[in-house]
């Protein structure tokens, strides 16, 4: 069940909270991928990163909803 996230009475929409969490995960994951040189193996790095971001975000939302 998705509900507003209560941070000491400060209500944030669940989507925004999920995005913030995803951004943190994505920030570090992006650095790791850069170190491994993954970006050289994909056709369009930006598109790849957007897809990766969306996957992480959807996973978080799915886990939260279940």
């Amino acid at each position: 069940m998705l509900a507003n996230v209560d941070v000491y009475g400060f209500y944030i929409s669940p989507f925004a909270a999920d995005v913030v969490v995803t951004l943190v995960i994505f920030y570090f994951l992006r650095k790791v991928l850069a170190r491994l040189g993954i970006n050289h193996r994909v056709w369009h790095p930006n598109l790849f990163e957007i897809a990766l971001f969306s996957i992480i975000l959807c996973l978080i939302i799915l886990v939260q909803a279940s």
Partner: peptide, 22 residues
């Protein structure tokens, strides 16, 4: 209001990053 504002700004950031990313 503060919560809503954070939410809408997150939407704005995501859309602009999405468009420029593509």
């Amino acid at each position: 209001i503060a919560g809503t504002r954070v939410s809408v700004i997150v939407i704005g950031i995501l859309t602009v990053a999405f468009i420029f990313g593509i």
